[in-house]
Design a protein around this nucleic acid. Structure first.
Lengths: 357, 357
DNA sequence: GTGAAAGCGCTAACAA
DNA sequence: TTGTTAGCGCTTTCAC
C-alpha cells in the first residue's frame, strides 16, 4: 500500500471546527441506543431487525454522515465482493465491451470489478495477477489462455474460481468462456474463397504476447493452405494495431509485385485504415481488392462500403462470464452444475467490402 | 458484500489431500524463525531488515505459496491504495483514454484504480460514489461537475482529495482538471465562420445527464448568436451518441427546407456517421456541407476526408489527474502546493471536412 | 429480535 | 536490526 496519512478536509469557513473522526458503527449504535451488532444487521438488509429499529438506525446513520467501512467487513467476513479481471488493453473497444458486459452483471449482484491491464505482456500479467490476488478477490477473470508458469500456479492455488476468456486454451486453468480464433479465421477465408478470391494477404500486428492475433494468423494460414490459395503475411506495429497501421500495411500489399484479391485484417480498425487507403489511391473495394476485418466494431457497419467482419460477441463474453461467476459465488446447486467450457460461436457478417452489390 | 463461502479448489487427482488453509504471515514467520513483524517489514521494501533475512523470508514465502493479504493491511493501516473514479461510460474512447492516462500514473505509484460507470445519470452516480467510498479509497475522481446534493455532501465529507474532470464547474468540490466545453465549441464555430459558413446545424444527443454535451450545445448557440449566424439544433439518441445516430441526424438536416453550410457534431463518432451518410447520398464534404466533430478520435484522422475536430487531450486529463493525486497522497511539500484548478486547453485540428484542399 | 465476546491478519507504536 | 503488545472496525458465534 502507498501514500501519506490522510488529512481531513478543513473548509475555509470553519477552521475552528473540531475535526471529528468519521463515525463508526459503534457510534451509531450509541446514538440509537442499540448494540453495534444490531446496526451491522440493519445495514445488511437480510438480517432480522425490527422494521422500526432498522429505519431509525439508517436515518441516524445518514444524519451522522456514517459511511459503512468495507475494509473491516472484508477482513472479518473473509469476503471482499471483488472480482478481478485482467485485459490486454482498455484501448480496444472489444475488450472494453467484455468489461462492460461483465460489469453489468456483477454490479447488479453487488460485486465490484477490479481491473488490470497487461499491455499484451505475460510478465506484466503475472505481476498484475499477484497484485490483484492480494486484494482477495472472490474470483478472477483473465484474457486468453497463455500465462507464465508462476501465473498459472498463482491462479490455481488461489482457491477461487478462475475464468479464461476470449480463447479456448488447450489446458484451461479453470473455467473458459470463449471461442477459437483460428477456426473463426478459417471461416472468414472460406467466405473469401467462395467470393472468388485466389490470392490473399493477412495484415496483423507484431504478435508476441497477442495470442489472439497469432491464433487468427494461424487459422488464416491453415485455411489458405487447405484451399491451396496463394498468400502473404504482413506484420506491422504492436497490438492493438491501429487504423493508421492498417493503412500503412496495405500500401505494402498494393505495391508488391504479386497482385492480391483479398486482404484479411486482424481487426476492423486495421481493416478500416486499409479501406480508406485504397480509396485515397483510387483502388476499388471490393472490385479490385476485398477487405475483411474482425471484431464487429461500430465502424464496420458505418463505413462505406461496410466491412465484412467476424462478430466475436465481445459483450456476451463478458455477461456470460458474469453469469457464470454469480452462479458460482452465489448459487448453491446451479454453481456446482456450471459447465467448464462455454463456447460463444462468432458470427460472420458479410458486407460490401467483400461482396459487390 | 456478497456471495457464498469460498471453496478451496480440489483437483480431481488428489481429493484426499488435506486442505491446508492458505498461509498467513505468522506461518511464514514460524517457518523462517523470526517474528511476524519482521516478515511484515520484509514485504514492504522500505523497512530496515537484514538483506539475508529478507531474502530468506521472501523465498520461503514463495515456496509456501504465501500471498500477502491487503484486506488486513488496509484495515490496520487505514490505507487502501485505492483511487476511485466514476465515468459516464466505458463505451467511449475519450473516457477510456482518461482512465488509461490515470491508471498509467497511479499503477506506477502502487495505487489501484476502482472504476465505476454512471451511465450519464446523476442518481446512479450518487449510488456509485457511496458504494465506492465504502471501499475507503484515498482519493476520488469524478467526471463533470454536476452532482446530486447528497453526492456533493458525500464527496465533501469523505476527507479525501476529490477531483472533478472534463469540466470546470462553477463551484468545484475540490480539485479540477478540465476545460470549458462551451468555450471550445465557440472556437469551433469561429473556425467554421471564417471558413465561410453562414448557416449552421448542431447534432447532439438527448443530453439530460450529459452535461458536457449540453455545454457544447450552449457554446455553439452562444457563438452562433454572437456572429449572427442562422442555426438549428438536432437531438437524437441517448449519449454516447453513435455513428449510426449521427447518420440519421444529418438526414434531417439535409432534407430540411433551409440549406445548411456546416454541421457541428457533439462527437467525432456522430460526425463520422454524418460524413458517410453524405457520401452515400452524393453530397460533397466540405463543398456542399462542412462537418466538424469533437474529441480527436482516431477516426477523425483516418476518415476520408479527415474530420475537423477538437482535441480535448483525454489522456492528458487522466495523467495530469494522476500526477496531482500522487503529489497529494505521497508528496509532502508539493502536495500542499497543488493548484486547485488545472486547465487543459483543447486543440483545434482542422482537416478536410471543413476546408477543401 | 437482540446482545456479548472474540477475532479476522495484518501493522502502529513502542521497546530492546 | 528485531520483537512485543495492542487494536484497526467490522462480523461470526453463541447465548438469550
Amino acid at each position: 500500500m502507498a501514500s501519506l496519512p490522510r488529512k481531513r478536509n478543513v473548509s475555509g469557513k470553519d477552521q475552528r471546527t473540531i475535526l471529528h473522526k468519521p463515525p463508526k458503527m459503534a457510534d451509531i449504535a450509541k446514538a440509537v441506543g442499540v448494540s453495534p451488532m444490531t446496526v451491522s444487521r440493519a445495514f445488511r438488509r437480510d438480517a432480522s431487525v425490527g422494521e422500526a429499529t432498522r429505519r431509525k438506525i439508517l436515518q441516524i446513520a445518514e444524519e451522522m454522515g456514517y459511511v459503512f467501512d468495507s475494509t473491516a467487513s472484508n477482513l472479518r467476513s473473509q469476503r471482499t465482493g471483488f472480482v478481478a479481471i485482467t485485459i490486454p488493453s482498455l484501448n480496444n473497444s472489444n475488450f472494453a465491451d467484455t468489461v462492460r458486459g461483465l460489469n453489468e452483471v456483477l454490479q447488479a449482484a453487488g460485486l465490484q470489478v477490479l481491473l488490470g491491464y497487461t499491455n499484451y505482456d505475460v510478465d506484466e500479467e503475472e505481476r498484475l495477477i499477484e497484485q490483484l490476488l492480494r486484494r482477495r478477490p472472490e474470483a478472477i477473470v483473465v484474457t486468453g489462455g497463455h500465462h507464465t508458469d508462476r501465473a498459472r500456479r498463482l491462479l490455481k492455488s488461489a482457491g477461487i474460481p478462475v475464468v479464461e476468456t476470449w480463447d479456448i486454451p488447450k489446458s484451461p486453468v479453470g473455467y473458459t468462456v470463449g471461442f477459437s480464433n483460428a477456426d473463426a479465421m478459417c471461416r472468414m477465408v472460406d467466405h473469401l474463397r467462395s467470393a472468388g478470391a485466389q490470392r490473399l494477404a493477412f495484415i496483423g500486428g507484431d504478435d508476441k504476447g497477442d495470442t489472439r492475433g497469432a491464433d487468427r494468423r494461424r487459422g488464416f494460414v491453415a485455411a489458405a493452405e487447405r484451399l491451396r490459395l496463394e498468400y502473404q503475411l504482413i506484420s506491422l506495429g504492436s497490438p492493438p494495431i491501429s487504423m493508421r497501421e492498417g493503412a500503412q500495411a496495405i500500401v505494402e500489399v498494393l505495391d508488391a509485385r504479386q497482385p492480391v484479391d483479398a486482404v484479411v485484417c486482424v481487426s476492423d480498425l486495421a481493416a478500416f485504415g486499409a479501406l480508406t487507403e485504397c480509396q485515397r489511391r483510387g483502388v476499388s473495394v471490393p472490385d479490385d481488392v476485398m477487405i475483411a476485418g474482425f471484431g464487429a466494431y461500430d465502424i464496420a457497419e458505418v463505413a462505406l462500403p461496410g466491412l465484412t467482419t467476424m462478430d466475436a460477441h465481445s459483450m456476451t463474453i463478458g455477461s456470460r462470464t458474469g453469469e457464470l461467476l454469480v452462479a458460482l459465488l452465489r448459487g448453491g446447486t446451479d454453481g456446482a452444475a456450471a459447465k467448464k467450457v462455454s463456447h460463444i460461436e462468432p458470427t460472420l457478417r458479410i458486407s460490401g467490402s467483400t461482396v459487390s452489390r
